[in-house]
Measured scan of single mutants.
Amino acid sequence: MQRVNMIMAESPGLITICLLGYLLSAECTVFLDHENANKILNRPKRYNSGKLEEFVQGNLERECMEEKCSFEEAREVFENTERTTEFWKQYVDGDQCESNPCLNGGSCKDDINSYECWCPFGFEGKNCELDVTCNIKNGRCEQFCKNSADNKVVCSCTEGYRLAENQKSCEPAVPFPCGRVSVSQTSKLTRAETVFPDVDYVNSTEAETILDNITQSTQSFNDFTRVVGGEDAKPGQFPWQVVLNGKVDAFCGGSIVNEKWIVTAAHCVETGVKITVVAGEHNIEETEHTEQKRNVIRIIPHHNYNAAINKYNHDIALLELDEPLVLNSYVTPICIADKEYTNIFLKFGSGYVSGWGRVFHKGRSALVLQYLRVPLVDRATCLRSTKFTIYNNMFCAGFHEGGRDSCQGDSGGPHVTEVEGTSFLTGIISWGEECAMKGKYGIYTKVSRYVNWIKEKTKLT
């Protein structure tokens, strides 16, 4: 034993070699072989497995989906700052455009905790909710729209109204504003409101030439003092309507412009014939205590009207009353817009006519005020429907199939267009061939041609 100890002390290297040989010859039971080890760690190889990531292109799944990435790591994937920024906006807080917040056709661009709407022409605001041009839906104005110097929408209202708090709607500024039905039992019968379409306001006024200088022999019209197929109006439903009495009662109609003036057809009036105007009328054979009678003290036909040349060209006249009318729910003026808007309103496509005229061709006159909704007829169809001249200051309205029309005794009465609950004068009943005849239409004086003249002559002093 002493000898062994001496050998170990003198030859430590020998001992180490012996131990190493023993270990190498022993069977290893701690580690699995290569094949079995792979069965336990069965993990798919990654895209760049075996390579240094710093030297390969980034992978979106590896960089940002398996674990949260930084902007720089995302930049490695896209290799483009702009594309990385677009991805980053949604990656950080989701897609803010998912709810489609942009209105009126706006395009949404996502941002971090926010979004941006790219608005089409005519709109602005956070969600493109603000109209900035009158060309689109009248700028959301209830009545009139004008573009300011910086191309912003400025709404306005006709006389007797003021802008509401929203700067879009119009509200009454006087007790009985024009064009409004205020009798409670008839307010439910107000005709369907007309909503502004998209309009090209630059070209809204037709490029028409008034044929002022045409000389033409007097034409022989049949029954051209021209509501057939209409309905009984309720008291106060058309408070701007008046009836004219002269040699015979209810020979023509008219509309209240203001307390002192009536507008009617020029062919209705004769110099030297006494005319009485009755406002607030409903049943011409009954006294309903809503009527107001006034005498006409002055007749002003349009300066281009000449019955000797043509009885229905420039067929418009103004009547001055001896005493002002007292405005109330049964006696209310009709609204008159400017030339541009009167023309736009007419193009809405349908209007209402009213009167006490004959209820059928050569038949009896109506006792109760009649009204009828009539569609506008395109000019080409209008011209083809008659052998008589249709001037540019006239328009056609009615039904091709016949059966409904204005008729004798309705002449001078109103053709009105309702705009968001307020009625505007767009025409004056003038003439036609018979009444409600198939293929024939009622012919009306186009008020847009005469609004400046009306307003100039009827100013209240």
Rank of each mutant, 00 (worst) to 15 (best):
F224S: 15
K274P: 13
E208L: 12
V273G: 10
E124N: 04
V181Q: 12
A436C: 07
I40V: 13
Q96M: 10
C117F: 00
Y161P: 01
E281T: 14
I300E: 05
G236P: 04
E281N: 05
L130T: 14
E286G: 09
L346Y: 05
F78H: 14
R3E: 06
C145E: 02
N203F: 06
T215Y: 08
V359C: 07
K311A: 08
E73H: 09
A366C: 05
F31V: 15
V451R: 02
I112K: 13
A308S: 14
T422S: 04
Q2P: 12
V451Q: 03
N38V: 09
I300V: 12
P333G: 03
L327R: 05
N36S: 11
R449M: 14
D410S: 08
N245Y: 14
L383E: 13
P172I: 05
G409M: 13
T332L: 12
L60V: 15
P414L: 13
A26G: 12
L19K: 02
N138K: 05
P414E: 03
H289Q: 07
T16R: 09
G179I: 01
N452H: 11
K89C: 04
K152I: 08
R404G: 15
G122W: 02
R404F: 13
H415S: 01
N310T: 07
T332W: 02
D223W: 08
H303L: 05
I7C: 07
N328E: 02
I15S: 04
F251N: 07
K339H: 10
G236M: 06
I428N: 00
T287Y: 12
G236N: 06
F78E: 15
R3N: 09
M394S: 06
H289N: 14
G363V: 06
C97K: 01
R384F: 04
P375F: 10
T417V: 12
Q96F: 10
T209I: 09
Q370R: 14
A337P: 03
G125Y: 00
H415P: 00
T422H: 03
D33K: 09
I336C: 02
L60I: 14
E53P: 10
G94Y: 07
S70E: 15
Q96S: 15
T81R: 11
N80K: 09
N127D: 06
L103G: 06
A207F: 07
M8L: 11
N393C: 03
V183I: 13
S430I: 11
F71W: 11
F348W: 11
Y312V: 07
N452G: 13
G413K: 05
F399P: 14
P44V: 11
S350I: 07
N59I: 05
L60Q: 15
K152H: 08
K339I: 07
G272V: 09
F31T: 15
S107V: 07
I210F: 09
D198A: 15
L20N: 02
F176I: 09
R294S: 02
Y371L: 10
L189I: 15
Y444P: 00
W240M: 01
C435V: 03
K234D: 11
V77N: 15
S99T: 11
A164P: 02
D249Q: 12
Y201T: 14
G230D: 04
S107N: 08
G409A: 13
M394I: 09
K438I: 06
G122L: 03
E159W: 05
A9M: 06
T381H: 13
E67C: 04
V4K: 12
D338S: 10
H361C: 04
P324N: 04
K247L: 07
N100M: 08
G236C: 03
V183W: 10
F71H: 06
M437W: 11
E66Y: 05
V153H: 11
L23H: 03
N147G: 14
D410W: 14
C119W: 00
W431H: 12
Y201P: 08
T290E: 05
A308E: 09
L369F: 13
P12Y: 14
I429G: 10
C69Y: 04
T461Y: 12
E35N: 12
T84E: 08
E433D: 14
C141Y: 00
S204F: 15
T458I: 06
F221Q: 06
G246V: 05
T458H: 02
V56G: 15
C335Y: 00
G402Y: 12
E53A: 10
C117G: 00
G122A: 04
R404V: 07
C69Q: 04
R75S: 06
Y305T: 02
F121R: 04
R364H: 10
T445L: 11
T422G: 02
I344V: 10
G229T: 04
N138W: 06
T158K: 02
E35D: 13
V263H: 00
K39E: 13
Y91Q: 15
S184D: 15
C108L: 01
P235S: 06
I297H: 06
R384L: 09
L367G: 14
E98K: 12
M65D: 14
I454E: 00
K39Y: 05
K362L: 06
Q143D: 00
Y305K: 02
Q241R: 06
